[in-house]
Write a protein that binds this DNA or RNA. Structure first.
Lengths: 207, 207, 207, 207
DNA sequence: TATGAATGAGGATTCATTCAT
DNA sequence: CATGAATGAATCCTCATTCAT
């Protein structure tokens, strides 16, 4: 009789992933040892290898769960909002909020992942996939706004979305490493201002 | 017996740094071995250690020379341009140009450096310092524009500059790793458009 | 609750031994893991340890059952044959037949056992004991032939028997590993020819 | 300036191989650790890996040098002997002599190699190749004897040679592990006797 | 100065064995 | 009795750094 097979396994995996993340955040992937992870998770090395065949798989799973789900989550949190502009606005607020309050560690993990992306194709593809999904979603919002006559007709949705995601990740790099003098709130405000200026010119707004 | 003291040493250092960079770009810092660097540079490991006391020092020097000089270079290339807007415009063009044509490897090195920044304070400080210098310079241009009545009086120069540098680095991450579907030219165009809309509202432009 | 005590245990043991043998034949003893054996036998590792206290014990039991019984079996199959020469002839035929048709895997197991004999005294003693028993039995046949005037009086039975067993095992090594170009039938024929020439010289045969 | 490149490297290799052999003879290949070999050779593990890329390569090289050269050596030692029978006789004497006096460890190494042959194709091929070469050489002697009218015309040289080599290796197994009661001298004598009886029947001998 | 052989601690991974359920 | 998760010592191999020549 299997004692716990159903979710006991999932719990263990999660324990390991949590331990791994916290170790990775401290020393990066390469410098983190499997022993470190085992120690932090309270398991033995051997046990760890029952759940992940390789140190690399831990990283990959972490990547998938911590970063890969971002697009889906963002979508879930905003899809019910009416109006392209409010939805876009909400996306940006969520990003800032997440960075600021909710998951400050995710930012650091993004950096660790980028560090590995240089020599690990799977990691690189993972990050690029996440990027594409985020851009797609933001672009779809903008397109919707254009279609609804809410936004400037000629706006290049994909370009704008790319810039937003790029800026988000760039800012994450610095913010997550404690760069002094960053004012996320002001950046959010200015970004929204610029977007509004650009997407909804006077002509439209006045209607 | 006489020769080799003045800049022969500097040449050797540069050879090593070049070799190191190309190795780092391929496997990252941790996975690159000193033997790799020695082999690529055509020198022996022993020789290498005459110029750099530690593998880490190679990285640090590289960081300083390849990334740390960016602010200074940007400044040198643009300081003589008259007018805040043309100068700002030029900065963005230079960035895109550098990414696109001139130093495509610098982008990858930036990623490698970020990977190390997680656990290496010196690297982190280096990256943050570069960030601060770049932001300072861009902000100074904007401030100048405001002072000259060229830009919107209330614009928060430091915030805007932060956003620009953040976006630049974020885009660099993806671009340097060959993310498909990125249109740097269009991004540059749209960025300039947005900035212009924001910084020089109709009221000012009409004057 | 009642059942399983008499020979159920023996059946289990046999299942395990069969599984173990087939695993050993594939990767040798050292490389075979207890998990391998458990998997092949359809039992759990834990169950396996109820029947054998140690991986080593599995090997030892296997050695005893698969190799150690050979002398006894050979004896049983030939003891009723009248005449020393027909009996000797039959022994050689049985050996070739076994190698050829019946138990091709036994040969490979002999090799595995020899591999262990280097560092395991018990295994070594087991193989040497089997050797001694086989030699003893063959020598006893020859001695009988001499006593019966069937064979050359001065023949050194133990020496000849040793040579036969040695040759048998040597040939087994190569045959069991698929060495190309071995003609067991011809070897059997020539061996019998030589033995006959040697043991029953013309003088005797003509009588 | 390379300090010692020419044969310093070969010397080191030999040192390592000697150490490895003595370790292998004691615990077999699998149980022998690289640390064992390093310790016995007086070198560090790291040094060892400068000369052999893998533990397995040490084994393979050893196989080649200690066993693979046997056919060549046998040939060199006997090729100048006139007459097929004297040459065949000498081969057998050399084998017994080698086993007895000169290289008692080679026999044990043969066993270790066989133990690996089960799961290592290269080792298996090596042993089979050595076998084929030895058989070929002995068969060529016999063929020569037949051609010269010295031996029985119908003798199947390859079969006889196979039997001899098989017997040699089989006997080696037992002898090298100290099996009691083996009389190599008597075996040699009886083998020669049998061969002579078989290959040079009275008809030929009387001529 | 330059060389590259040597060092040896450290890291990922395996596996015989135990034991709570 | 059976299960299979857990343990952790042991193994192969790597690599930054040193130093004799």
């Amino acid at each position: 009789m299997p004692k716990v097979t159903p979710d006991h396994k999932e719990q263990r995996k999660q324990t390991i992933l949590d331990a791994a993340q916290s170790v990775f955040l401290g020393k990066g992937y390469q410098l983190a040892t499997v022993d470190d992870i085992a120690a932090r998770s309270g398991l033995s090395v051997g046990a760890l290898y029952r759940y992940f065949p390789t140190k690399s798989d831990i990283m990959l799973t972490l990547l998938e769960r911590k970063l890969g789900r971002a697009p889906e989550i963002l979508q879930r949190l905003t899809q019910d909002i009416a109006g392209a502009w409010p939805r876009l606005q909400r996306c940006i607020e969520i990003f800032v909020h997440a960075l600021h309050v909710r998951h400050p560690s995710t930012g650091r993990f993004l950096i660790v992942a980028w560090g590995e992306a240089i020599q690990d194709n799977t990691v690189r593809k993972g990050l690029q996939g996440r990027y594409a999904e985020l851009v797609d979603y933001l672009a779809s919002i903008i397109d919707e706004g254009i279609a609804a006559g809410e936004f400037l007709p000629g706006a290049e949705s994909w370009v704008i979305a790319s810039m937003l995601v790029g800026m988000a990740d760039g800012i994450t790099l610095y913010w997550s490493t404690g760069t002094p003098g960053m004012d996320l709130r002001a950046m959010r405000f200015t970004t929204l201002q610029m977007l509004r200026n650009y997407l909804t010119p006077l002509a439209i707004r006045e209607e």
